[in-house]
């Protein structure tokens, strides 16, 4: 017991700088481990890129020659080091198939997926935070129960089904919005926005349902805290106390979920991209897997992993800002 106690004290008295340094170190280590894992899995995948390119009738000599020119006959370690070293300078290698730089392909696609994920999360939050709050405050009334029920339904709806339904109603029947495709922001901002509305909404419906439930339960927990009663005894109304003293405390647990949800949002975006024929990372990844274009697969997965790790690190660092018990040492 004494040892445990001492450990706990040490944890508590470490300053914010140490917390941040530890979190950044974990981030870097995760990134290295992820790159090894991605590389090894891609190398171990069945299927031969040379065979795919040259077809079933190719001779074994021509296959070997192509493998050599692609560098596939070199030892795994040196291929791994080349790949990682290149990524550090922004060079993700060359596609085996198209012979184009992988980094350029990812960059143009990332813009599409990035907008989708960003607006998907933003819309989900804008819906979930107020709705979750109302559901928590009115949990003993009919309106609260209705919100909980709706979010349960939203949870059960797959994003692609919501997408197809949205296309059917708003694009096919009402003809308000385009059913699919993408226009870059620089070409035509209005068309860009019009093409993003349905995909973003389909993605946000599910996310908003999930988040509403988490916001609700976080607020319900906070409402039962003693400091909310203290705040009301000091002259806040129930809602005022929640706004002033509840939200920040509730946000600590909601932010955790937000980080985890962002990973599922990327997966959801990939599905939504194929429903709406958006030229995003998801389509790039699916095409590359079908063609055994390992450089593109590796690079795309690495970018997705990087994005998720960055978000999770940002979430952990936000605790330092949100919770003074982590930020400040005991006096």
């Amino acid at each position: 017991m004494p040892n445990l106690r001492r450990g706990a004290t040490r944890l508590r008295i470490r300053g914010p700088a140490v917390t941040v340094a530890i979190r950044v170190a974990i981030f870097l280590l995760s990134l290295v481990l992820a790159s090894v894992l991605i590389f090894v899995v891609c190398a171990a995948l069945p299927g031969d890129i040379a065979q795919v390119i040259l077809g079933q009738n190719a001779t074994s000599e021509s296959l070997a020659a192509l493998r050599h020119s692609l560098g596939l006959d070199r030892p795994l370690l040196s291929r791994y080091l080349d790949w990682v070293g290149g990524m550090l300078t922004g060079d993700f290698g060359t596609s085996f198939f198209t012979r184009l730089p992988v980094a350029d392909q990812i960059a143009t696609r990332l813009a599409v997926t990035g907008w989708l994920v960003f607006f998907g999360m933003a819309v989900a939050l804008l819906v979930a935070v107020p709705v979750g709050m109302i559901a928590a405050v009115r949990r003993r009334r009919l309106s609260g129960a209705v919100i909980s029920g709706l979010s349960q339904i939203g949870l059960a709806v797959p994003a692609f089904w919501a997408g197809i339904l949205a296309v059917f109603i708003f694009a096919v029947k009402l003809r308000w919005l385009p059913a699919n495709g993408y226009v870059p922001l620089r070409e035509d901002p209005m068309q860009w926005a019009a093409h993003l509305v349905l995909p973003v909404l389909s993605l946000a419906v599910v996310q908003a349902s999930v988040l509403t439930r988490y916001v609700r339960s976080a607020i319900v927990d906070v409402l039962e805290e003693d400091y909310i009663r203290t705040a009301r005894a000091a002259g806040w109304t129930r809602l005022g106390a929640l706004w002033r003293h509840g939200l920040r405390n509730a946000s600590i647990s909601v932010v955790t979920v937000l980080g985890l949800q962002l990973a599922t949002l990327f997966v959801g975006a990939i599905v939504i991209e194929s429903v709406f024929a958006l030229p995003g990372l998801g389509q790039l990844l699916l095409d590359a897997v079908a063609q055994r274009d390992l450089m593109v697969v590796q690079g795309t997965v690495m970018v997705l992993v990087f994005a998720v790790l960055v978000v999770n690190t940002a979430v952990d660092l936000s605790y330092v800002a949100l919770d003074p018990r982590i930020r400040t040492a005991r006096r």
Binding site: E225, D226, Y227, R229, T230, A231, R232, A233, A234, G235, W236, T237, R238, G240, H245, R248, N249, L322, D323, P324, R325
Partner: peptide, 28 residues
């Protein structure tokens, strides 16, 4: 109503609770 009571609470009527460890907002 809650509003009318809130105007009195903390001003004319005040209360000290039993548990000081949890009575204050930990983030402020």
């Amino acid at each position: 109503g809650e509003r009318a009571l809130a105007r009195l609470r903390g001003s004319e009527l005040a209360m000290i609770f039993q548990e000081p460890m949890t009575a204050l907002d930990p983030t402020m």
